[in-house]
Design a protein around this nucleic acid. Structure first.
Length: 538
DNA sequence: GGACTCACG
DNA sequence: ACGTACGTGAGTCCC
């Protein structure tokens, strides 16, 4: 790509006096910039407007918004030519009448949608979110998408080969243990072997089959009556699944997606998908790169900076619990974060009646699970499953939690009640999510809706905070004239690459932007890490 | 294309 | 009696 100064502009779009309307700034910007055309002066984005006004709706593409808001179906790109399924003729190979009908209906829809959506975003918190958060963020995301991230291809290749070798050994062992050949990657075939051939107990069913999920398999290992050959087979299958997942999803897949020209891997950040306000990543999804397993961490270590540069990873410490502290005004939680205490350990002292200094690793781990269970509104049943403890024990944990954190208990009730009254849940910054099922007579649906009502303000506020930080960081990078670049965003984390001499400035800038992204009643703590790769920066 | 499974926060 | 954690995206199997 040429330098920004050399970029062409579309005359129409360059005139600052003209109101520019866009179906999707992010999508169109990326497409145009790849053609070396800068899109500028956008005043309205249909996709973002629709998302803010109806985040619970799935699909904010122009066609979908037109259907929902105007009740019209636009001409689809496919309907124009469709010589073969999935093949689009370029516009310049189509009849002009076809192109004008297609382009005209879409352009007309953008104007019509502007007229119906813009007034609803004229004032209030949604208007502010639109103007100060989502629209500026779209620009930032475009830049991140165009830039991509460098990966160490030879390293991926070596790991992939290594893992393929281990996989074929596991397949061989699985076949021996099962007494015959089968596809280890097929849940259906595994089902037959475990539950018909080996007669193992069925612990859980899915809609159509007997489940062989990770949970079921590890549960079976805990059952003393499961015979030794079956145990070995289960262990081999679990290992195979874990490696096959990493091999198929990352090790062999990502190198194929690297841009030959730049040697970098690009993703898409979807700004109008998640109902809570979070971003999502796709094609490929870089928000689920492994970290929990050993091999997983090695995958992250193959995400590398420009030669001679370094990487910075910055993540919020327990941002959702801090948001919960702020929203609930819970005295114990606010106090703990103000003191800089270890909240998981504090919960453990309540649950297990020990002094904070005597909390064991296991107790802290269990307390952490309980803390998160509360954020998600988990039932005692689910908690008992997760911690593999009796239900009454799980009930005691949840009860004890709410006795220790009374303000959280009150908040959870109020937030559901408010959502039921208003019809929507809302974040600290006023982002809304309509939740229709709060009034349904179906108990399961209603319970699920209540969990959504409790979780959305927490998860959504955390998402708002990171988005604010991203906009500030991008502005500051530009303002301070740094060459450092923001590469990735993973819900509570930002990843950068930078030349070594900028380390101090970058760390200060990122820390300040992230910690200062919201004024909560507790501090927002940020962990920074620097290294030769994303993995090392953690 | 649905179902299942599993990777992340 | 039932079902049971929030939010995502993607690979594979199999109809």
């Amino acid at each position: 790509m040429r330098s920004p100064a050399a970029k062409t502009s579309l005359g129409l779009l360059a005139d600052p006096e003209v109101e520019k309307l866009s179906a999707s700034l992010e999508r169109e910007s990326v497409a145009l910039m790849r053609a070396d055309v800068a899109l500028d002066g956008v005043r309205f984005d249909v996709g973002l407007a629709s998302y803010l006004l109806a985040s619970e709706r799935r699909g904010h593409e122009l066609e979908q918004v037109a259907a929902a808001e105007l009740d019209v179906s636009l001409l689809s790109r496919e309907s124009l030519s469709n010589p073969r399924r999935g093949v689009h003729l370029p516009l310049d190979e189509l009849a002009p009448e076809q192109v004008s009908a297609y382009a005209g209906s879409h352009a007309g829809a953008v104007f019509a949608l502007h007229d119906t959506l813009a007034p609803r975003l004229a004032e209030g918190p949604l208007a502010e979110l639109y103007r100060d958060m989502e629209l500026p963020l779209a620009r930032v995301l475009v830049e991140m998408e165009l830039l991509g991230v460098r990966i160490d291809l030879p390293r991926f290749e070596r790991m992939s080969e290594e893992v393929r070798g281990e996989l074929s050994e596991l397949v061989e062992r699985a076949h021996e243990l099962a007494g015959g050949s089968f596809n280890v990657g097929s849940p259906r075939q595994l089902e037959t072997i475990l539950f018909d051939q080996m007669q193992l107990p069925v612990l859980k069913k899915t809609k159509t089959s007997r489940s062989t999920s990770h949970d079921v398999l590890t549960d079976l290992l805990l059952h003393p009556e499961v015979p030794e050959p079956a145990r070995q087979l289960i262990e081999v299958v679990l290992e195979h699944r874990s490696l096959a997942k990493l091999e198929g999803t990352y090790l062999s897949a990502l190198p194929k997606l690297v841009d030959a020209g730049t040697g970098r891997l690009r993703t898409r950040y979807n700004q109008a998908v998640a109902a809570t306000g979070r971003l999502s990543s796709s094609d490929p999804n870089l928000q689920n790169i492994p970290i929990r397993s050993e091999l997983g961490r090695r995958v992250r270590a193959a995400f590398v900076p420009e030669p001679g540069w370094k990487m910075l990873a910055a993540d919020y410490s327990q941002v959702e619990l801090r948001v919960l502290a702020h929203l609930s005004h819970d005295a114990a939680l606010v106090d703990a974060y103000t003191r800089g205490a270890d909240v998981h350990a504090q919960t453990a002292t309540a649950l297990f009646g020990v002094d904070e200094a005597d909390v064991s690793r296991e107790q802290r781990g269990a307390a952490k699970t309980v803390n998160f269970a509360v954020i998600y509104g988990q039932s005692e049943f689910a908690l008992s499953r997760n911690l593999r403890i009796p239900r009454r024990e799980a009930r005691r944990y949840i009860q004890t939690f709410f006795e220790r954190y009374e303000g959280v208990a009150r908040f959870m009730d109020e937030v559901v009640e408010q959502a039921r009254t208003r019809g929507y849940a809302e974040t600290l910054f006023g982002r809304r999510r309509v939740i229709p099922d709060l009034r349904t007579k179906n108990r399961n649906l209603r319970a699920a809706a209540e969990r959504v009502a409790r979780n959305t303000p927490i998860q959504g506020t955390a998402a708002d905070i990171l988005k604010r930080a991203m906009v500030t960081v991008a502005n500051e990078l530009k303002g301070q004239g740094l060459s450092a670049r923001m590469l990735l965003t993973v819900h509570d984390e930002l990843v950068f690459e930078f030349p070594p001499e900028e380390q101090q400035a970058l760390e200060a800038l990122v820390e300040a932007a992230m910690a200062g992204a919201a004024e909560l009643s507790v501090p927002l703590a940020v962990n920074l890490g620097v290294g030769e790769s994303w993995g090392e920066a953690h």
